[in-house]
Amino acid sequence: MLVYIARKLLQTVPVLLGVWTLVFVLFHYVGGDPAYVLLGRHATAQQVAELRAQEGYDSPLYQQYGRYIGQALKFDFGVSRVTHQPIRKMILNGIGPSLTIMLPSFCVMTALAVAIGLFAAFLRNSRNPLFLWMDKSIVILSVLGMSIAMLAFILFGQYVLAYRMGWFPISGYESEWPDRLRYTALPMLIWIFVNLGYDVRYYRTAFLEEADQDYVRTARAKGLSETRIFSKHVLRNGIVPVLTNVVLQIPMLILGSFLLEDFFSIPGLGGITIDAIRNSDLAVIQAMTTVGSMLFIAGTLATDILYAAFDPRVRLE
């Protein structure tokens, strides 16, 4: 197992280097001189020269590259030009609000999706026309939900539920605890609804695939009830694709939901990134892209290791 973990870690190195190079090339080379990207076409030569000296854009590219790798390794991205705060501090402060929204919503959404997915698979496997019809409605509702844009969900929630009905505050954030929930309830609700459809369908398919396996036929043959087959056997075996899907989404949870945080003025990582884009704060965008990619790579690594822990065959590959 240790050998496997070491090998996986080693395999991560070229990917990490590739990502750093990609991000560096994107922000320092593709768009041309970053000073022009930041100041626009109408900047005077003096402004450009000042900014280049200030941000170090005047040194050779390989030196800038070295500096950037150093920043990524030390997790120290300098100071934002717009907010005048250390970017490391901005990112660390943003994790809390992002997770406050995402973690509970994600847990509730996954539990709901697994339950509904399993239920739909159970219905699909029966001969009862009413049950089949119910399964079909679940699928149709999920596809409808998937097809509605998140922006529409947000605007509807903010306008109807918050503004018209007054059930929730329209936007804002509170760092004190019980009060925080009052502000985060609506974004959480919206996030759950936006993502539910996709996962219900995914899990339903996974459970249906399990329901076709031989051991289910055996269980039926020895006279177990359908309820018991699904709640015990199919659920347990079908949990593997569920876990894969869950682990892959974890890095995204820390990054937060960009649109939700923007609309509800939640000071999370997604909100920071969107503000940075609006203010052309290149250093913050670059830092967020770097951190996001590193989180993603860490998430993939964790998935691989978890898999190997659950299934020893994987280690020999």
């Binding site: 070229p14 990917v15 590739g18 990502v19 990609l22 991000v23 994107l26 922000f27 593709v30 768009g31 990207v37 890095p251 995204m252 990054l255 960009f258 990134t273 884009i277 052309s280 965008i285 670059q286 967020m288 892209t289 996001g292 990619s293 993603f296 790579i297 993939t300």
Partner: peptide
């Protein structure tokens, strides 16, 4: 495989916003 692992390691929305941002 290395190339597409690298590209897919950058969260899609961040990469999209980054490219759209630098290309103006």
């Amino acid at each position: 495989v290395w190339l597409y692992t690298v590209v897919s390691s950058v969260p899609n929305i961040l990469l999209l916003m980054g490219i759209a941002f630098v290309l103006g």
